[in-house]
Nucleic acid binder design. Sequence first.
DNA 1: TTGACGATGAGACTTCGTATCAGTATTGTT
DNA 2: AACAATACTGATACGAAGTCTCATCGTCAA
Lengths: 152, 152
Amino acid sequence: MVSDVDLVVERLELRGHRVTESRRRVLDAVLAQPAHFTVDDVLRSTRKVGRATVFRTIRLLLDLNVLCRVLLDDGTLHYRVSTRGHHHHLVCRECGRVEDFTQCDIPALTRQLANATDYEIEGHWLEVYGRCRACQAAGREAATVGAGHRRA
Amino acid sequence: MVSDVDLVVERLELRGHRVTESRRRVLDAVLAQPAHFTVDDVLRSTRKVGRATVFRTIRLLLDLNVLCRVLLDDGTLHYRVSTRGHHHHLVCRECGRVEDFTQCDIPALTRQLANATDYEIEGHWLEVYGRCRACQAAGREAATVGAGHRRA
DNA sequence: TTGACGATGAGACTTCGTATCAGTATTGTT
DNA sequence: AACAATACTGATACGAAGTCTCATCGTCAA
């Protein structure tokens, strides 16, 4: 829904932020990325923008809910253009493809938890990992490396 | 269940790892920590053990399921002695207290998702954030700092 | 046109973690 | 007991990810 440059620009302005050349460059780069990406990917494709500015802009876009964070199961943090409000990610461990989903029954869980613990639940973070259909079909056996989390 | 030094030592030996002085120091330090801690906390309380060894040992303990990782909502990674198998965390945003829980209906979610997406679900990561009873009672209003994620 | 202030970029710095590597300790074998 | 093989260690260099500082610049509004 909010995947369009103009909409983001509008949102920036509404919040009193300036729409500068640098920000536009970062924004273009971000929107041109594949499904998910690291800050480094953006850095590499915005050669005329300072490192700090790229980080600042990405943080800004997070605050504006234009981007969301995707936690890969090796612990690395990626970013993704956020196409809806609250959602979660289903990440393929093999090819890295990401699906969004919203149909988790988290409200029920929240109620359950609140009852059981007396906490006032304010938010949650859920990432699900698996193998997408294509990777299953390709028959490649997942490496199944113990329970360890190692970096790429 | 596995919060005892001897049990961990046994587990190490079973897996063919040596129980060295350094490992014992790290283990003691870890078990002496409060509910959750960073690697740095452990580093500070194990003065005679090398930095690399502390990291290595913590990774080892993760592999042995003696520790698990807790993702705080500011994005920082903490560790916690794992008292049961698969579980999730409910973290108080104010005081940092952590409760474990297992009663989430993730199997149902998994089935649902598998049907809807044709993924083969292999794992997930869920962290829930809120305010514990004590913090609510203390009446301290949560700072409500926009949607930003800032470090401590 | 001037002043205030937001934004920028270069680069130093911090934090968290891994890789390297020479040296030490332990183990099993004979 | 001697030995080689191997596990482990700590110092340190390195790397990735991100923040902070600060002088400078651009833009808006009076």
